[in-house]
Simulated assay, not measured.
Amino acid sequence: MSTEHDALHQPSAPVVTEPVPDLQLQMLIRLIGQDAQATLPLTLVVGGGFLYGDLISHEAWTAEWARSLRGLDGPGAEVLEHFPQQVDQAVVDKQGHDTPQRLPQWIHLRDATGVTGSDPVVMPLWRGRLTDVSGWSLGKPS
């Protein structure tokens, strides 16, 4: 047998790998996304630290983010008020429809707490890329 036609003995080109989000977590996010009122306590491992809070839908996150932007003062505050809806509309315009065609790529938490050292960081809303999540668990630390 010649090694010329044997794929196992052929030199291989470098392979570029990309982080892949956890399929089960993507499906869980899609499930929560079916009800804007649904929440689920969740703990994530992100960047070597823990992050926990309530998993919420993209729709709930957008509404709460818009509400928080309405509370801002200063120059340009009124421009930011409609920013979340404008971003969502731009995505719809680009896709040509408002139904997601692929699994979620982002995760949204409410009342999130990040723990990487001794001082936890509390955030009312948090959004992160799923490819940055290296582990997760249902529930929050006691």
Rank of each mutant, 00 (worst) to 15 (best):
P84G: 02
D73Y: 06
G117D: 11
D6N: 15
D119Y: 09
K140W: 02
M123A: 13
A13N: 05
T116K: 15
V45W: 04
P21N: 10
P120N: 08
W106K: 08
L42E: 03
L25P: 02
I29H: 06
V15T: 11
V15C: 03
P104M: 11
V91I: 15
P124E: 15
S12I: 12
E59C: 02
M1P: 12
L80W: 02
A13H: 05
R110I: 03
P14Y: 04
Q89M: 12
W65E: 09
E64D: 13
P14W: 07
P104T: 09
A77Q: 09
L40W: 04
Q86H: 14
G76V: 11
V122C: 09
S118Q: 11
Q85M: 11
L55N: 03
E59S: 14
L55V: 02
D54L: 13
F83L: 15
I107L: 15
L103C: 01
V79T: 10
H97K: 07
V133R: 06
W126C: 06
L8F: 15
A7R: 12
Q89C: 01
L51G: 01
G96L: 04
Q37F: 07
V87G: 07
G128F: 03
H9E: 12
L130G: 04
S2I: 07
Q37G: 06
H58F: 07
G74W: 09
P11L: 15
V91G: 06
V15L: 13
K140L: 00
D35T: 01
Q105F: 03
I29W: 08
W126F: 14
Q24N: 05
K140R: 14
L28P: 00
L28Q: 07
D93F: 05
L8M: 14
Q37A: 13
A38P: 00
W136T: 01
I56A: 01
W126S: 03
P19F: 07
T17H: 10
E64V: 00
G49H: 06
P100I: 12
L80V: 01
P41C: 01
A77N: 05
